[in-house]
Write a protein that binds this DNA or RNA. Structure first.
Length: 582
RNA sequence: GCCCCUAUAGCUCAGUCGGAUAGAGCAGUGGUUUCCUAAACCAUGUGCCCCAGGUUCGAUUCCUGGUAGGGGCACCA
């Protein structure tokens, strides 16, 4: 029930984003800007000081000092200027600080430390104000507009419909889904797309494999072709088809039977994939079928284009594309000597189709076994007139499933695969999604099944969810004691160490989101949410919310609400439920 | 042979555009509950940042060359 509520609200959120117009949204954006642009304010002040002191302009980067005790913000600009100004960095820093203005009176302390860092501590009142701003921003907290509605197509999973989805698909699905949510949060118009290879050799093999199993079930033993699909799921498919259609395919010509069964099996696999992904909370805007390209000969139009540009040639009876002229290691075949278009050739048409549909930038998430394929697609797209930067591939590294500390082996063709659905069912959707986005894409992921299933403090998913449940519970308890959320409460009372630490952490949310979107990396978000949970738990343990001091209690209610909002916003992007009770 | 990814604490991993004393979780040890959820909190130790050069005022980070592990190098997809 909690989960369905969650999905409902996240759908609303998507529409909200897509429409991109709303008074609430506008307000959210404005207040977010006021909150988060303090780094811009500081950079401006430093820039002005530089101009006054040295009459020069340079990029000023504001970062977070390694240690909180040093200050809230820092800049190394003095270190960077040492050479050009031929002056000791500390001396430069001193001059900058002498000229530093602060129109809004936000700086509580400015110091020069180490070799020449300028550390700035912001007034406590500024931090305290942000609590209300987070609550005001609500679901829009963390939103940004720098994506400028740029249309992005993110294609991910796109597994062949010739077998069940495996655990790498599960990783790709969670990653792609979250990336799109992140991109949309910072103002892109990003969509999810799944490419279905419903034509060509693999599908013919699927048909032959199912047909063989089907005939065997009817007592007329047939062997699955050597290069066919040997997995038990083929038997299941044949079984189902036999149940639905009886023996009516038995008397068809072999080729005819394989053809019909290929189509039926394909649809069944696709329906299954859709369901597994939907149950995993991944819903695509577009399910694109390869056959639609073949039907309208889109791939031949590509070849015509390449031919016209003199970028093809014939060799050994095959048609080649001069991909090496565009950075690929060697030329690639478009049409085999048997006269069959390669997957590659259709794939060019597919990516062209995405551009035709109005997408400005394409992202594909591929498995590690496809990295050698990147250069040729990129080459082809450049050849037909697209900029290199508009086609990007992120390789998602492999997944190692561990049970009892032992590696569980997988193999798609042999049939002893680890199915995505199996894992999701076993560990739960929340844990599965969290674990799959927890690591950097470039790193292989060790998925500890036992840990994911554990309902204990070792499991990071529950650590974050527990923080949310706890907040909801305290709010409930407070309401029972006559305390309501009051946005007029005196937030200057929030001055305990743990309170300030929590507020500072909550304020990082927008920049975490932006970093994720900018780098196309998801793993920062789960890590951040664990930090938020940690900061909250620490606050909770050291400070009571419901106290005799009703003013203080009200202020802390605000902090609770702001914390809850950040957790919700983060979990919404991850599509992980935020339980109200645990 | 060529290409991609990885190498940081006992384990699993962060480390943003090159900056200060390299961090977190888990595991270990010790403590915390008459009090809003102990699925929590607090304290405590640990480093050849794989190696060697280079660039730089400054390198875990960038470059080159190695070493080790994983993956890929089809007229398959």
């Amino acid at each position: 029930m909690l989960i369905s509520l969650f999905i409902y609200s996240s759908r609303l959120y998507e529409n909200f984003m897509a429409l991109n117009v709303s008074g609430v949204m506008l307000r959210a954006r404005l207040s977010t800007r006021a909150t988060m642009k303090i780094d811009v304010y500081i950079a401006d002040q430093i820039t002005t000081a530089l101009k006054k002191a040295f009459d020069l302009e340079t990029k000023v980067v504001i970062e977070k000092p390694r240690q909180e005790t040093w200050g809230d913000f820092a800049t190394t600009v003095a270190l960077g200027l040492a050479k050009t100004l031929r002056t000791a960095p500390r001396k430069i820093a001193e001059t900058i600080v002498e000229h530093l203005g602060d129109e809004k009176q936000l700086f509580a302390k400015v110091t020069i430390d180490g070799p020449g860092f300028i550390n700035i501590t912001v007034a406590q009142s500024w931090w305290q104000n942000t609590v209300k701003e987070i609550i005001d921003a609500g679901e829009g907290y963390g939103d940004d507009t720098w994506g400028k509605s740029h249309k992005i197509n993110l294609e991910f999973v796109s597994a062949n419909p010739t077998g069940p989805l495996n655990v790498v698909s599960a990783r790709a699905a969670a990653t792609g889904d979250v990336l799109v949510a992140l991109l949309n949060k910072v103002g892109f118009a990003a969509e999810r797309e799944y490419y279905i290879n419903d034509a060509g050799r693999q599908i013919r093999l699927l048909g032959a494999s199912v047909a063989a199993r089907y005939m065997t079930l009817l007592g007329k033993n047939e062997d699955v072709p050597d290069d066919g699909y040997q997995g038990d799921y083929i038997i299941d498919l044949a079984q189902e088809l036999k149940k639905e259609h009886g023996d009516k395919f038995a008397n068809l010509q072999v080729a005819e039977r394989q053809n019909v069964l290929a189509t039926l099996a394909l649809e069944k696999m696709m329906a299954l994939h859709k369901k597994v992904l939907h149950d995993y909370r991944v819903d695509y805007q577009t399910w694109f079928r390869e056959s639609t390209l073949r039907d309208k000969n889109a791939h031949f139009k590509i070849v015509e284009d390449l031919k016209a540009k003199d970028l093809t040639y014939e060799k050994d009876g095959a048609l080649w594309f001069k991909s090496s002229e565009f950075g690929d290691a060697k030329d690639r075949v478009l049409v085999t000597k048997e006269g069959e278009p390669t997957y590659f050739m259709v794939d060019i048409a597919y990516h062209q189709d995405k551009f035709d549909r109005g997408f400005e930038t394409l992202y594909d998430l591929w498995g590690p076994d496809h990295h050698g394929y990147i250069d040729r697609v990129s080459a082809a797209l450049q050849a037909i007139g697209h900029e290199k930067e508009h086609f990007n591939v992120r390789i998602i590294q492999q997944v190692n499933m561990l049970r009892d500390g032992q590696l569980v082996k997988m193999s798609k063709r042999a049939g002893n695969i680890i199915e995505m659905n199996e894992v999701v069912q076993e560990v739960g959707i929340d844990a599965a999604r969290f674990f799959f986005v927890m690591r950097k894409l470039d790193s292989p992921l060790d998925f500890d099944i036992d840990l994911a299933k554990k309902r204990s403090d070792e499991n990071p998913v529950y650590y974050v969810q527990y923080a949310h449940a706890r907040i909801v519970n305290v709010i409930q308890f407070a309401k029972e004691h006559g305390l309501e959320l009051d946005l007029q409460a005196d937030h200057s009372l929030l001055r305990a160490d743990e309170e300030i630490a929590l507020i500072r952490k909550l304020n990082e949310f927008p920049s975490v989101i932006s970093t994720c979107a900018r780098l196309m990396e998801v793993h920062h978000l789960p890590a951040y949410l664990m930090d938020v949970a940690s900061a909250f738990h620490s606050f909770y343990h050291h400070n009571r919310v419901v106290t005799d001091d009703s003013e203080l209690s009200k202020a802390r209610m605000m902090l609770l609400e702001a914390s809850r909002q950040v957790l919700i916003n983060g979990l919404t992007i991850l599509r992980i439920s935020a339980p109200e009770r645990m």
